[in-house]
Each structure stands twice: as C-alpha cells, then as structure tokens.
Design a protein around this nucleic acid. Structure first.
Length: 636
DNA sequence: CTAGGGTTAG
C-alpha cells in the first residue's frame, strides 16, 4: 500500500501549475536547484512536470536545466518526450554542452534507440568528446547487447587518449551478458585484469552478475569466493545468479551466511530469497520475509509484491496472493502474469482467463510470457476454444510472434480436446522449428487418447531433439502398455538401457506438524509402512463409494493426478499425513504436476471423508532438492 | 556516464 504523505515538491508544483504569478519571479538557477533535488530523489514524473511549468512561466531554461528532464525521460522510457527536449535544447543553444550531450546519448540508448544516440555522438567534434561521452555511448551499446559496436567504441576511446575509467568497464560488461557471449565475457574479464580494474568492487560486482546471466553459476561462484571485499551488492549479485538458475538451496544457504557476516539484506535480497522460497515451497521462510518487508515498510516495492504473489501462489495460498495483488498501486504485466499463472497452476482456468481480460481492459499490453501463462491455464482447465481465441489474438492484435513455448500450449489444447490430426498439421505448418516440448505435447495427447501410431511419430522427433529426457520414454512405454503392446514396451526398455537412461522414481512431499516428508512411488521402506498401506486401501474404497460414477477417477487418471498409478507416491504421502494428524488439522500436499479441476473435486471428497484441510502446493521444481535423498525420510 | 531485482509450458 502506498502511503499518501505530504510532499513538499508536490505542493510547490501545484502552486506553480495553478498560479504562475507569485513564482514567476523565480530565476532559472532556482528552478535548476529544484530539478536537481527531484532528480536526486528519483521523482522523475515530478521533474518533467516542473520543467513544463518552467517553460509555461517563460523562465528560460539553460544548459544546467536540460539534463534533469532528459534523464527523467530515460528512466521513464519516454523517448518521444526526450526528443522534444532535444529539439528545445537545440533551439536554446544548449546542445554543445557536454553534460546535455551525454544525457541525450544515454536517454536515447536507454530507450532502445542506440542509433539515434550514435547520431548525437557523431555530431560531437573529436576534441570535445569527453570520457563521459564515450562512456555513455559504450553503455548504450552494452544495453543493446551489441558487442561489436561496444568494443569498437571502446578501442576508439583508447586510441583517442581519453582516460578509461571503471565506469567505462561497467558500460562494456552488459554487452557480454548474452548467453552466447560467455567466452567474450571471460576475455573481457581478462582485459579488466590487464587494465588493473580487478579489485574495483563495482567492476567485480558487475562481472559477477555477468557470469550469473551468461555463464555458469560455478564461474560466478568462483569470482564471488575470490573477491576480497564483499558488500551487500556482491551478496545480492550472487544470490540473484543462483535464484535465476533455480539453485534455491544455495540461495537460502547464502542468505543465512550473509546475515552471519552482518550484512543486512535489502529489497533486492528479498526478491531472490522469495523466488527461491517459491521454487522450493519454503512457506515458513517466505512468511518470515514477508514480515520483514512489512516491518521495514518495503511494501510498496513492486518487485517485492510480484515476488510475494508468486511465492503465495506456489505455496497454495491463493487468497493471500490475491490480497497482495489487489493492494498493489501499480500493476505491471509481470504482476498480472504472476497472478494469472498462479490460478492456472491450481486449475482455475476460468479465473485466469477473466484476469487476463481484465488486464487488457486496464490497458496493460500482454507480452509473450503473459500469453504462455493464460494459454497453459486454459489447456489445464480444458478451455479449448478460449485458449485458441487467445492464441489467434496474439499475432493479430498484439503483433507478438508465437514461439515454440506458445505452440506447445496450442498443441496441448488441441491434443487434450482429441483433435490429434489437427495438432499434427499445426506442427507441420509452424513458422518456427518445433522443439521437444511441442512434440512432447503431442505425445502427451496420444497418451490420453490412446493413439499408438501418432505417438510413435511424435516420439521419433522428440527423442532426436531431447534424447536424454527420460519422461518421454516413460510416456511412450505407458502408451504401449495401455494398448497391451508388450513388444512395444520391451522395445522402449531396450532403448533406454542402450542409452543408459534410468527413470527416477516419482516422488511426492507432504507437510504435517511442521515437517516435510518425502515419498517415492512404490515405497515400502517407511517405518509406518503397514499402517500407511492399510490407510491407503481404506481411502481408495471411500473415494470409490463417494464417487460411484468413477468419472473423476478416469479423468484424473488421464492427467496423471492423485488416483493414477503413476502418482502412487502422492497417495502414500496423503495416507501418511492422515495417519499423523488429527481431524481439523491442516495438511500441505506438494504436487510436482499441475493441479487440474478434477483434482480439486477429489480433494473435496477426501477432505469431507477424513476431516482434514488440504492445501495443494506447486512443487514443479522441487526436484532440485531431491538429489541424494533417501526414500521415506523426514525431509527437514 | 556508473555494480545487484520480479513472471515462463512439459
């Protein structure tokens, strides 16, 4: 919640806007001081407002006035307003001042118009091009991830004898942050060393984040360990590097460690930590972080709100996620995507679709990721037509070119609806090369609709694209199994043996009495083994009686949810939890499959029969934690 | 001119 506290500049601005007379006598330099103050406090829209008032009042802006509103345009992403300021600066004869020029270069570059920035740069006479001008231009190419031009500019700078500073390097580094530029990044690191900028903490922090983005977390970690001075930003850069690659365990470890080093976490630390809580389902720590956010009055930070929505959603606390979302003053596409995705995860396709429509009504333009979320929400909830409508609008209305991630959702939509031939013809006519996920979606549909012939075709492609992905072999094997084709099953097994692939057993987690317990499919090693299995038999009978039609059973099975053989581990986990809780208590089930509406029905049945409250939590990426864990042990 | 940040199917 953003608080409305009286803001002196706002009051002044209002005075300026309403009655020009009393302040008309103000001088240019008085206004410049005011502009500087606003700029320092990052009050960019106010800065623009004030500048407009200055013009209206007829006070002539000078070279010291222009950089502030130009910077404001850069921060707000308003290149059109920026270029208007550019024109005004030209008219006012302020264009030859180096700080106006650098502000303009940086503004155009930050708004994605590097070429315009370059034009401004090229008009600067050689002898007037200061280090700051070069730095601005290099940083512009850096943001554009244009290594060639950035390096070219850097060389030109060195040849012209202008002093290269650490800021120059800081601008250069992002140019190598693209995945394929990893080796360039390494050589840049070498250059930094050669120029003697190693040991400069700003440069090292920047290199660290570069490794996080384009290299491996290991290379980032090596640099981290080698750094003598580790400040808050260093810890944050390392935490973010881990968080971005899903190394949630390392994030939480580092978070504890930094506190031991008396480094006080800030909003950026919390973003990384919350994202890892969401990955791993650590709701307790997530809530702890939320409390700290409240205590430190960081609640109006949009980055944190987005991370909180995601955390609550993945932990199954839909209402809490919704509350955070509703309280946000300004919702970006990312906020909407987080909430839409959350409802999608939990099978509420209709709500997800409604929210998507609402987002558009609010004037927010969806991006590719938002479409992925709504499309997958539709396909999981069986809203075939709705999903297809969204897909068609993507290109028509928003000029977004669907990628493989969107096509795999569409294949899923048609596939679940039983239109397998249609799905195949779409794959054949896709403008982008289908990847494993696309063929995999078709393979999954073949499983539901028992189409062996098409499954073999889909598998042929998918096994070429992702030969190591065990999931697809298992899928094909169960398709043969369903068709009672034992030769097929044997064929797949042989293939897996030859390629040295082994299916890891499916696993499920359940939280009760504050501990997390892990179960593997077919597990017989638990100390309460007999009790668990008799409870399980009892449970299955209860559900069968309550849902006489067997309808939800069949549907759930086809989507691999609680009643299926393949999710044996979940049944064990639920049985165990019921044994070890009292009526009325809360049990958290962690699913690493998407939850469908039929599962909610099943949960309702179970809930009534056993008098427990279930929270279903997404644990799609929980497997990071699985390595080296024995079966049936208390997890933590 | 300038180091760290949120969302993404299967």
């Amino acid at each position: 919640m953003s608080k409305t506290r009286p803001c002196p500049t706002k009051t002044l601005l209002r005075t300026v806007a309403r009655s020009p007379a009393p302040v008309a006598a103000a001088t240019t330099s008085e206004f410049n001081d005011l502009l500087r103050g606003l700029s320092r406090r990052s009050q960019f829209s106010d800065s623009l407002l004030l500048f407009r008032s200055i013009l209206r009042l007829g006070v002539p802006p000078d070279a010291f006035s222009f950089p502030f509103p130009i910077k404001a345009c850069a921060s707000l992403g308003l290149p059109v307003n920026g270029s208007l300021l550019h024109c005004r600066a030209v008219k006012a004869g302020c264009i030859h001042e180096p700080f106006v020029l650098t502000a303009l270069i940086s503004m155009y570059a930050r708004c994605g118009l590097v070429n315009v920035a370059r034009k401004v740069f090229d008009d600067i006479p050689e002898e007037m091009a200061t280090a700051v001008c070069y730095n601005a231009m290099i940083s512009g190419y850096g943001l554009d991830e244009n290594v060639v031009e950035a390096a070219d500019m850097f060389n030109r700078m060195r040849q012209s004898g202008v002093k290269v500073g650490s800021v120059t390097i800081l601008g250069l580094i992002p140019a190598c942050s693209l995945n394929e530029h990893f080796t360039l990044g390494v050589s840049l690191h070498g250059l930094v060393f050669g120029l003697g900028f190693d040991g400069d903490s700003t440069v090292e922090n920047c290199l660290l984040s570069m490794y996080g983005k384009c290299g491996t977390v290991e290379s980032a970690r090596r640099l981290f360990d080698a750094m003598n001075v580790k400040g808050l930003i260093t810890w944050n850069a390392m935490i973010s590097a881990y968080a971005q690659h899903g190394y949630a365990g390392q994030v939480l470890e580092l978070y504890e460690e930094m506190k031991l080093h008396n480094i006080c976490p800030d909003a950026i630390t919390f973003v990384g930590v919350l994202s890892s809580c969401a990955h791993v389902g650590d709701y307790k720590l997530g809530c702890d972080v939320e409390k700290q956010i409240e205590m430190r009055k960081l609640g109006d930070n949009p980055f944190l709100s987005n991370a909180l929505i995601n955390m609550h959603m993945r932990c199954g606390k839909l209402a809490k996620a919704r509350a955070v979302f509703d309280a946000m003053a300004e919702k970006t596409v990312i906020s909407w995507t987080a909430i839409i995705n959350g409802y999608g995860i939990h099978g509420y396709g209709r709500i997800a679709a409604e929210l998507f429509d609402e987002m558009i009504t609010e004037g927010i333009r969806p991006d590719g990721t938002a479409f992925v979320s709504v499309l997958s929400a539709c396909s999981h909830a069986g809203l075939t037509q709705k999903g297809l409508d969204y897909f068609n609008e993507m290109e028509k209305r928003y000029n977004l070119h669907p990628g493989t991630e969107h096509y795999s959702c569409v294949i899923d939509l048609f596939g679940r609806a039983g239109q397998l031939e249609k799905a195949l013809s779409i794959i054949r006519s896709m403008p982008v090369k289908p990847d494993g996920a696309v063929w995999g979606a078709l393979l999954g549909a073949c499983r539901i609709h028992r189409n062996v012939e098409l499954a073999e075709l889909a598998f042929k492609h998918v096994s070429e694209l992702e030969p190591e992905n065990v999931g697809y072999y298992v899928l094909l094997s169960s398709i043969y199994d369903d068709a009672r084709d034992m030769d097929g099953v044997i064929k797949v097994r042989k293939m897996m043996r030859e390629r040295k692939l082994r299916k890891e057993p499916g696993c499920s987690y359940v939280q009760c009495n504050g501990r997390t317990h892990l179960f593997l499919a077919g597990d017989v090693n638990h100390r309460q083994n007999d009790e668990i299995y008799s409870k399980l038999a009892e449970l299955e009978n209860t559900v069968k009686e309550m849902d006489g039609s067997g309808d939800s059973h069949r549907k759930c099975n086809s989507r691999g949810s609680l009643l299926g053989v393949s999710v044996h581990s979940e049944k064990l986990a639920v049985s165990f939890a019921i044994l070890n809780t009292k009526p009325g208590e809360e049990i958290t089930v962690m699913k690493n499959l998407r939850v469908c509406e039929d599962c909610h029905l099943f949960m309702k049945l179970i809930t009534r029969a056993v008098d427990r409250r279930f929270t279903v939590r997404d644990a799609t990426r929980f497997h990071h934690f699985r390595d080296g864990i024995c079966s049936c042990q208390d997890y933590w």
